[in-house]
Nucleic acid binder design. Sequence first.
DNA 1: GATATGACCGCAA
DNA 2: TTTGCGGCCATAT
Length: 104
Amino acid sequence: MSNEPSDEQRVWQVVALIPVGQISTYGEIAEMAGLGRGARLVGRIMSRLPQGTTLPWHRVINASGRISLPAGSAGYAEQRRRLEDEDVVFIKGRASLRRYRWRP
DNA sequence: GATATGACCGCAA
DNA sequence: TTTGCGGCCATAT
């Protein structure tokens, strides 16, 4: 039988490892999950997460340091609130923390 | 098969 | 710093 984890499974696994209060980007996640330049794939997978998931999806932002959800949307507000609850500071719409980088 | 779309990215100007 | 554009890759039509 195939125990091969799907791309979706690997992305979930990588996102789950992001430490509290730290952030990563779609591109970094794609790279770590072995998807190469599949940043858009990561974005698609994030958009399809089941409600009530325990995954720290809010710690994933784009390469510009900004939240990718439409500004003003409910999703944007929730992601920003969750990050601020973890002491991530926003300045002019950008997360002030240096983005989390994986340690090889 | 061709085209359009998306929680993206890097780079040039 | 911000914008625009090409590149990227899975899905939907």
